[in-house]
Amino acid sequence: MQESHVSEIADDNEKGVPAASLRLSGEFSEWLFATGFWRGVNAKCGTMFDQYEEDEATATMAQLIAASLGDKARELGSFGEGTVEFIRGWTAAGAPLKASVSKHGLLAELIQLQELLTGAAERGHRVRFSL
């Protein structure tokens, strides 16, 4: 599973050096895709955030994504304690490839990402996603 990177980019920064950045675990990144999170964001924002791609979001889009992460956190909070299992892909024979991750770990990364996006939106900065 491939890690993702999210970076806040200040528009007045000519070299595009991130104002803040976050590395997301491969498990968290896969979970967001497997649960349809990015599909929902794409529908709301008219974007094409896709796995293994790089894209940017405006401050307004960053705020919408942060709000969607809040919804995801509330949904995840309703699950029992322990681990969350999801299908991350399929074998050539059609058998599911499953992954299990700690609910606590997912929530921690979700909150970190939400905070980065909210801060960037408040400052009017763009956000670069390398998913």
Rank of each mutant, 00 (worst) to 15 (best):
G26Q: 05
G26T: 06
G26W: 04
E27G: 09
F28A: 02
F28M: 03
F28L: 02
F28C: 02
F28E: 03
S29N: 15
W31E: 09
L32N: 06
F33R: 08
F33K: 11
A34L: 04
A34K: 08
T35G: 04
G36A: 07
G36F: 02
F37E: 03
F37Y: 07
R39C: 02
G40C: 02
G40P: 01
G40V: 04
V41Q: 10
N42K: 05
N42C: 09
A43L: 14
A43I: 11
K44E: 14
K44D: 14
C45Y: 00
C45N: 13
M48F: 07
F49H: 13
F49E: 08
D50H: 04
D50W: 00
Q51S: 13
Q51F: 00
Q51C: 01
Y52G: 04
E53W: 14
E53F: 07
E54R: 03
E56C: 11
E56G: 10
A57R: 12
A57C: 15
T58H: 05
T58A: 10
M61A: 06
M61L: 10
A62L: 07
A62H: 06
A62I: 06
A62G: 07
L64R: 10
L64Q: 14
L64C: 06
I65N: 06
I65Q: 09
I65T: 13
I65P: 04
A66G: 06
A66W: 02
A67M: 10
A67T: 14
S68L: 03
L69V: 02
L69M: 08
L69D: 02
G70L: 10
G70Q: 13
G70C: 05
G70D: 13
D71R: 12
D71W: 00
D71T: 12
K72P: 01
A73G: 07
A73W: 04
E75H: 05
E75I: 05
L76S: 08
G77D: 15
G77P: 03
S78M: 04
S78Y: 00
F79H: 14
E81V: 11
G82P: 08
G82T: 07
T83W: 01
V84W: 05
E85K: 11
E85Q: 13
F86T: 08
F86G: 09
F86C: 05
I87S: 09
I87V: 15
I87R: 15
R88T: 12
G89V: 06
G89R: 08
W90A: 13
T91F: 06
A93H: 05
A93V: 03
A93I: 01
A95G: 04
A95D: 15
A95S: 12
A95L: 12
P96S: 05
L97P: 01
L97F: 12
L97Y: 11
K98Q: 14
K98M: 09
K98W: 12
A99G: 01
A99W: 00
S102K: 06
S102L: 04
S102M: 02
K103N: 04
K103I: 03
H104G: 10
G105D: 15
G105H: 07
G105I: 04
G105F: 02
L106H: 08
